[in-house]
Nucleic acid binder design. Structure first.
Lengths: 255, 255
DNA sequence: CGGGGTATTGAGCGCCCTCAATCCCTGTGG
DNA sequence: CCACAGGGATTGAGGGCGCTCAATACCCCG
């Protein structure tokens, strides 16, 4: 499976950037009996209440985790980019407490729990790497709680855009401040605990200030440093161990 | 170490309620070279930026994880009750991205990373149980994001009180609707993304309605069912596998 | 009998929400 | 080539929840 271009496989780029995992171990992961599938936008991969028997790996496209409240309000609790294993947790938590849906057309790969569990039992390093991945997911959630709980809408929006830019840069090969971001203002609002009206007005303000532009599913950042400042964005919480070049550029000076 | 009363050890009660771990395996954990320590209220166990070399187990008392923003605002991103391993993540994420402090006088036990890592490497079941614990922490964070992002102050406050009651009931032996809750209104506000003024007013309203009382570090709930309804509280996200009796009573009918 | 932390109260304001209409863009089909 | 549909973005007006600021009351403890 993509032997020649192993470095360009999203999962591999991702694991390499956030863990000390060896390439051999990654290869073992990809040799599991994987089933690939293309799905459209708005596809529900697993729903709240499900008890999945396989994990999902995102090869292309974006997905999100979300919950719906009694009054119909939706809260998105995570975005996922290529290389993410969005429901790795289902390996140990039987019942899904939220839904997983695609935000764009996506190419997914499914790994049976049974096979993955067997591999992790035999390979402790790999198990540690994946455990680490889930811990980074939790770190991102802490950052979201902080952002939603204590920042104004302007800073919240700036923050999520910073995060998505860096996370995308870690797996994509390309321009680092012009990224494909298949996320509607509605979805941003649902992730940030805001309304679409508020998101829209602040995005317009950013645009007027010449800070960034978000149209046609493409985010273009003109003043990364200022955006980062508005967001109070510090990428430490993403816990890169070996950030790819594109990410290093964005992060600038490291402490 | 407390051989006779093994069932009453907080860590054990906790692990038994949220995992399928065997008592033998828990015993192995407690046979590690543990150092116990008593600390006062407001003690910083580990600070943001630290690179701890040991994990902390809470034997008695409450702690919280928190972050401080540039403008001085504080966001609490987790509460911890006896039996919790609040910085288990430091085993795999070197640098702390938040601080860990005590909310009350506490008795802590410290387990060296080295020893714990060795044990987990040899005992995959135990490693899975602890991984599961960190996944439940993440599930709680998702619930917090949902609550802070999409619920009114009244529901948010009700929700955190429900959660703390159930989580405490899982490790404490005693009355299930009258719990020791050493949390100030200020700390509740910092956890919920509210101000102390707002928390205070809603708590008074609850009190006036005869729903609950929170004074002298004690929470007394008079109408659990109504509180649960206001909070839209569904304990599924806590992922109990074998809830203790006190918890079962609170949860009522299970789906 | 202070003293510090905690809780309570009041007045005024502002950020974001709600509701609802309109515009824009893109893809589709006649 | 244009009419049409539909999702998404934009705009306006008005209102409310929670915030800010600030003063006061409470209560445990030495």
């Amino acid at each position: 499976m993509m032997e020649a271009k192993l470095h360009y496989h999203p999962l591999i780029r991702h694991l390499l950037s956030t863990t000390d995992i060896s390439e051999d171990n990654v290869r073992l992961l990809l040799e599991l009996p994987i089933v690939e599938q293309d799905v459209g936008k708005g596809h529900t991969i697993v729903a709240e209440g499900d008890r999945p028997s396989r994990c999902c790996l995102i090869l292309e496209g974006f997905t999100c985790r979300s919950r719906v409240l009694a009054d119909g309000a939706r809260q998105i609790v995570a975005f996922h980019v290529p290389g993410d294993l969005p429901d790795l947790q289902s390996l140990h938590l039987k019942r899904m407490d939220h839904s997983l849906t695609t935000l764009s057309p996506a190419r997914l790969a499914f790994i049976p729990h049974e096979a993955l569990r067997g591999l992790l039992r035999a390979n402790h390093d790999l198990a540690e790497s994946l455990w680490r991945r889930t811990l980074i997911d939790a770190a991102i959630l802490r950052e979201w709680v902080t952002s939603i709980g204590r920042k104004l809408a302007r800073a919240r929006i700036a923050h999520i855009l910073c995060e998505l830019t860096v996370r995308t840069a870690a797996v994509e090969v390309g321009n680092d401040t012009r990224i494909a971001l298949p996320v509607t203002q509605n979805e941003l609002a649902d992730a940030l605990g805001l309304t679409i009206v508020s998101v829209n007005r602040h995005l317009q303000e950013f645009r007027r200030e010449g800070l960034l532009e978000l149209r046609h599913r493409t985010l273009t950042i003109y003043d990364w440093s200022k955006l980062r400042h508005i967001a109070e964005f510090d990428s430490d919480y993403l816990h890169f161990t070996r950030p790819p070049d594109a990410v290093s550029v964005l992060l600038g000076e490291r402490r």
